[in-house]
Amino acid sequence: MRAIYGLYPDPDSAQRAVEVLQDAERALGFKEKQIVVLSGEPYEDHPFGQRDKKTIMPWIAAAGGLVGGLLGFWFISFTQKAYPLITGGMQIVTKWPDGIITYELTMLGAILTTVATLLITARIPDWRRHVFDPGVGEGKILIGVVNAPESCQDEIRRRLCSAGAGDVKEFAG
């Protein structure tokens, strides 16, 4: 993988960089997907920070909770029927206590699904080498293009500079 990127000191110049790249993407022959944005914190009040915002994670979590609860309820009533022992004059499938366990497993289902959904949709863990620069941790915002055609490297470099990048770097991995 190869990439060419610039580091921007503030979100406004980063936004400009994204815009100049978007303007040129058709002419230079790369797709918007190839534009990479990396930041040390979320910038949701700028359009570039709004990329890929849509998610159905809450619905997945709710479904996970439902599955957890149903599985939990099935499991406890199964165990109570599998070895039925009378205690304290209660029924074998004891509804009130089963409700408590069902509740806990509903919440556990929702929590585990949320974590799993986060890991899968945010593509982590991923220890392969991707374009990255430690400057991101110092508050800079990395804007670049991944696997751009050889021919337009210079044009991308020029555009990244014009948006205010102090230094345009290349990445190969």
Partner: peptide, 9 residues
């Protein structure tokens, strides 16, 4: 890495 997608998720 800190892509917008990771932050949103």
């Amino acid at each position: 890495r800190g892509t917008p997608k990771q932050w949103h998720r």
